[in-house]
Design a binder for these strands. Structure first.
Length: 290
DNA sequence: CCACGGCCTGATTC
DNA sequence: AGAATCAGGCCGT
């Protein structure tokens, strides 16, 4: 087991990043967090001069953690790029150091398929149950952990077993998605290489239960497509209230607006809007309206 | 292209 | 207490 110090840029909002709803399998543990990096159990603990990484991963756990946490993102440059107005700049100020993660596409696809019309605690419980029921056990720090199951393992899962994971109607979506990936009918790696709009269309086309929002989350949180702009209820509200004076917007129009307005790093803007609106944002001061 | 109802289910609100 | 409503949507009509 490796144990060493990773570099962590000065403002890195670790808790908001790990627990804020882009990943679902991290929990607080003492002064740090326990979860998975590259499907290996890991513990991350803020320490003087960096981040203590403990992991059962093969290879270089520190490098894996740094890649997963996207520590080399240049947030200053990104903030300048998306900081188009006082409203988004206020959100950036409130959530300084919030990062996007670079997660595994397969797990992210299943996680956000499970997320539809649900909520973070329930999604976390579902994914934990899926891992316990269908994933490989892994020993780490004297505890018993369960890796996220492979596509093959989930493709072979019985529907009743999946339903016991609090998945409801999403269970059949998850199994059919696993079947398509396991059978090699869809290549997530190939999709990750496509331009964003094309990749999003390919995901929606390929998988039952994957619509534009879920696809955008997969692109943003696991495929490095920072120009994806997932529109969920919170982002929809924030854009409607803060940029359109409360006017109702279709999902499609909201997404198109976000991509055009924020540009290359629209996905980062989305994260900040999401956190700001979900945590406390209400009606905007009139001066922010257009 | 858009609007609407239905869908599993647990927590919260009324 | 039991009924609505909501929750990081998607699908079919």
């Amino acid at each position: 087991m490796g144990e060493s110090l990773a570099a962590l840029p000065a403002p890195y909002a670790l808790a908001d990043t790990l627990l804020g709803g882009q990943a679902f399998r991290w929990t607080r543990a003492r002064r740090g967090f326990e979860g998975f990096i590259g499907n290996a159990p890991a513990r991350l603990t803020p320490a003087k001069g960096g981040l203590l990484v403990e992991s059962a991963a093969d290879g270089d756990p520190v490098a894996a953690a740094e890649a997963y946490l996207r520590v080399s993102d240049n947030l200053g440059r990104i903030y300048r790029s998306i900081g188009k107005d006082a409203r988004i700049r206020g959100a950036i100020r409130s959530w300084q150091g919030l990062h996007l993660l670079s997660q595994d596409p397969w797990e992210t696809l299943i996680a956000f398929t499970a997320s539809s019309a649900s909520n973070v605690p329930k999604i976390s419980r579902s994914l934990d149950k899926i891992a316990r029921a269908f994933g490989e056990p892994a020993a780490f720090r004297g505890g018993k952990w369960h890796r996220f199951p492979t596509p093959e393992a989930l493709a072979g899962a019985d529907l009743a077993g999946l339903r016991r994971c609090e998945l409801g109607y999403r269970a059949r979506y998850i199994r059919s998605t696993a079947e398509r990936v396991a059978e090699g009918q869809v290549d997530l790696g190939a999709i990750a290489k496509m331009p964003t709009a094309e990749a999003q269309a390919a995901l929606v086309e390929a998988f039952d239960g994957t619509g534009p929002k879920v696809a955008a989350c997969v692109l943003l949180f696991s495929m490095g497509k920072d120009d994806a702009f997932p529109v969920d209820r919170w982002v929809q509200r924030s854009v409607s209230e803060w940029y359109f004076g409360g006017e109702k917007l279709t999902h499609r129009r909201c997404e198109a607006w976000g991509c055009a307005y924020f540009g290359r790093h629209a996905g980062y803007a989305q994260q900040y809007l999401f956190h700001e609106r979900r945590s406390r944002g209400r009606a905007p001061p009139a001066r922010f309206r257009r």
